[in-house]
């Protein structure tokens, strides 16, 4: 790793180093947080609340370093397969981003507009992002699911999901 050309070529296609970075960051975070705890020594609790965080941050930092070394030497984590997973093409961000968008829309809407509206947006948006183009059928399913779960949770389980904008109608 002495000269920069080798370094750049080594870094190329090593997105997994990001995982090592994340582990390292998590380790530092846990460590800093543990140091900041103020606890007087107590006879009844000699271990205290700091010990486990120290161990965990140590584990994370060691893993971060070993993973970085492993990746730089050509190691690679194996991406997970599955029934509907086709690893032969690269990650399809055109699907993920709208999907995350639908999810975020639900978070923003749920308290204000209520579950029936936000849940409809979530299902319809997710189905659209995943490639469904039956707009009307998707819409009907979305509304049906959202209304059904709203009443199911309210009447069946006694959990009041927010009604939001439709307060008084539902």
């Amino acid at each position: 790793m002495s000269s920069s050309p080798t370094l750049t070529s080594r870094l190329k296609g090593r997105s997994e180093l990001g995982v090592a970075l994340l582990l390292g960051a998590a380790g530092v975070l846990v460590l800093v947080d543990a140091i900041a705890l103020v606890t007087p020594y107590s006879q009844s609790d000699p271990v205290g609340p700091k010990t486990l965080p120290y161990i965990v941050s140590g584990l994370l930092l060691v893993c971060a370093v070993l993973l970085a070394i492993n990746v730089l030497r050509g190691g690679q984590g194996e991406a997970e397969g599955g029934e509907d997973v086709d690893l032969s093409h690269p990650a399809d961000w055109k699907t993920i981003l709208p999907l995350v968008g639908a999810f975020v829309a639900n978070i923003l809407l749920i308290d204000w507009a209520g579950w029936v509206v936000s849940g409809t947006v979530l299902f319809w948006g997710s189905a659209w992002a995943l490639g469904s183009r039956h707009y009307v059928r998707d819409g009907l399913i979305s509304v049906g699911l959202a209304v059904l779960t709203f009443y199911g949770f309210y009447l069946g389980l006694g959990i009041p999901l927010p009604a939001g904008l439709l307060e008084g109608i539902l």
Binding site: D92, T95, I96, L130
Partner: peptide, 11 residues
């Protein structure tokens, strides 16, 4: 899982 499958949906 849903995000992962979305990224690699089998066409």
């Amino acid at each position: 899982e849903a995000l992962w499958v979305a990224a690699h949906m089998r066409r």
